[in-house]
């Protein structure tokens, strides 16, 4: 990053001409984000096919070390970006949410590929979560099945652009907020939905009972 990029545009004119190119005036936000955007550490966390493309992106040919992302951490505690690479299944979902909760703030989620964004071709499956954004806040969606490594890098650059625009004040506002971990019952259950589930199942039971009595009376008649 040259001093020109570091300069905040609104202060650029205030630098004396002889010092231009040597001195930069910037805002705290800008320099703070400059540091953050160039050291986004993704979590080493792959789910399905897209994970293989993510590995290829990390490997020699596409090499996202060029963006300061080479340190893929296996522990969520040391990671800033969770690249949800692949189909999220209901069985895996509690773990994904738990991993997200354990990440350090400020944290970002990239939904890589059709499956992570919206269920993908497997959407209709009984064990598939139709989009991780039903549970986690997603910052960037990358379409494609799977996105090529270059498409992934493009998405990560979009994330960097997003980081650029944030201000320190906002970034930590949500810090420490945890997402309730879904529970594996007869189907996946969001703890926030419990009342709704009860209402729904009771209604369903009633409807079934009614149908049964209707069938019975029809039979006896």
């Amino acid at each position: 990053m040259s001093t020109d990029d570091l300069n905040s545009p609104e202060y650029k004119d205030k630098i004396p001409e002889e010092l231009q190119g040597t001195v930069a005036i910037t805002t705290l936000d800008r320099i703070y984000n400059w540091g953050r955007r160039n050291s986004l550490w993704p979590m080493m966390f792959g789910l399905a096919c897209c994970a293989i493309e993510m590995i290829c992106t990390a490997a020699a040919r596409f090499d996202f070390a060029r963006f300061g992302m080479e340190v893929m951490r296996s522990s969520p505690r040391q990671a800033d970006v969770m690249i949800v690479a692949g189909t999220v299944t209901k069985k895996m979902l509690p773990q994904v949410v738990r991993l997200y909760n354990q990440m350090a703030d400020p944290k970002y989620v990239v939904a890589m590929g059709a499956c992570a964004s919206g269920g993908g071709p497997f959407k209709e499956g009984y064990n598939v979560v139709s989009g991780i954004d039903k549970y986690l806040p997603v910052d960037v969606y990358i379409p494609g099945c799977p996105p090529t490594p270059q498409a992934l890098i493009y998405g990560l650059m979009k994330l960097q652009q997003k980081v650029d625009k944030q201000s320190i004040k906002e970034v930590y506002r949500e810090a420490g907020k945890e997402i309730p971990i879904p529970v594996l019952g007869p189907d996946i259950m969001d703890p926030r939905d419990y009342d709704k589930i009860r209402e729904y199942t009771l209604k369903k039971a009633e409807a079934e009972a009614q149908a049964a009595t209707a069938a019975e009376s029809a039979q006896s008649a």
């Binding site: 910052d139 969606y141 990358i142 379409p143 996105p147 498409a151 979009k158």
Partner: peptide, 13 residues
């Protein structure tokens, strides 16, 4: 064209 990443899938996808 593979450069399709967006911030909002409900609007764009």
């Amino acid at each position: 064209d593979y450069e399709l990443a967006t911030y909002d899938r409900h609007k764009d996808n």
